[in-house]
């Protein structure tokens, strides 16, 4: 893949609102984009450190609820002792707090569960997601439970002196989501190509060797969990302000599964994997819906996933890379400092 590929892809997606007239499709692109953001965060944990978080939707949902409640304000009684009253704040602060609170949860979950890894981490994350779902369902005073939190204000962005813009239109939301994906992509790229990323890849590859060269495995797993959870929380916050209504259904296990499918089919441990997998499996239901009935649609979705996993077990992106390298028949590269250690 050339250096230009990401820029060409970005230009293409930046041009979409100019020629796409179907507002529903644009809406699907926005929600898919938000899920891609969450899948990218999951990829940091699953693809680079090898830890599977099956409760990733918890961080997404926490980000959504935190941001929504920051923007809407709340008035709750704690333990029947004292009241906590919060006046509505600007949605941008909600986005910030949603990210921070989710990152904090990532820190706690990481600290708690990375002493025993692998299957235990999977179980802890599933349980955590279920607990957060139950809290959102039952703490009616705060979350209104199954009645949902309606009327979440859309994001207002801008700088003092430059003016402000409230994101009422789909096109505006589309560009904001696109910008967040670009930011997340750059962040993850820099992270995995640094000593942080190398430590993560090292502990996934050979843990005892990693510790013996002085890598504090737990520390880097926790760092990955914090960044990953924060990013998922940010995606959740974007979702809340775009959809403008959230309910406990946001914590559905299906949402985690969707993220995992996006990462695995696209290619875990690659930068572009969640983008490719996310686009395919985010848009597939909508595209299929216009041709076949709802029952057939999900059967085809499942078949598509099975075919991808069977034919390309490493994922779509690694397969394309291999094919690209083979057809190009790259000559033996003279070892040069530049370009070493880059992970496409």
């Amino acid at each position: 893949m050339t250096r230009l590929t990401p820029i060409i892809v970005l230009l293409f997606f930046a041009s979409v609102p100019w020629w796409l007239t179907d507002q529903y499709l644009l809406h699907t692109l926005i929600t898919t984009g938000i899920f891609i953001l969450a899948a990218m965060s999951l990829n940091l944990l699953l693809g680079y450190t090898g830890q599977l978080s099956l409760g990733h939707v918890a961080f997404f949902g926490i980000g959504a609820y935190t941001s929504a409640l920051t923007a809407l304000g709340f008035d709750v009684e704690l333990f029947g002792l004292f009241r906590v009253v919060h006046e509505p704040w600007p949605p941008v602060l909600g986005l910030l707090f949603g990210t921070l609170v989710a990152a904090l949860c990532g820190f706690v979950i990481g600290k708690l569960s990375f002493r025993v890894r692998g299957a235990y981490f999977v179980i802890v994350t599933i349980s955590f997601a279920e607990v957060t779902r139950l809290v959102s369902l039952n703490w009616v005073e705060l979350t209104q439970g199954p009645l949902a939190l309606p009327g979440i204000p859309p994001l207002t962005i801008g700088f003092p002196g430059l003016g402000y813009m409230t994101l009422w239109e789909k096109t505006e939301n589309y560009y904001v989501v696109l910008a967040f994906i670009v930011l997340a992509y750059i962040l993850i790229k820099r992270l995995v190509n640094s000593r942080f990323g190398r430590a993560m890849i090292a502990l996934k590859g050979n843990e005892s060797l990693a510790t013996s060269v002085g890598i504090d495995v737990t520390r880097y797993l926790v760092i990955a969990a914090i960044v990953s959870a924060g990013m998922a929380g940010c995606a959740g916050a974007l979702y809340a302000h775009y959809i403008q209504i959230i309910d406990p259904m946001i914590f559905m296990f299906l949402n985690t599964v969707t993220m995992v499918i996006m990462v695995i089919t696209g290619g875990k441990g690659t930068l572009a994997g969640p983008l490719v997998g996310g686009l395919i499996f985010g848009l597939a239901p909508v595209v299929l819906r216009s041709y076949v009935g709802p029952e057939i649609q999900w059967i085809l979705y499942g078949l598509l996933m099975i075919v991808v996993v069977f034919v390309l077990p490493q994922g779509i992106v690694p397969a394309i890379e291999q094919w690209f390298n083979r057809t190009k028949a790259e000559p033996l590269r003279e070892p040069s400092v530049a370009g070493k250690g880059e992970r496409a």
Partner: peptide, 20 residues
Amino acid sequence: SVFDSCTVFENVLMGLHRRV
């Protein structure tokens, strides 16, 4: 005991973890 799926250069970079 090496990191199999990383290049030799990346391997050494991982070893240099504590240096900088």
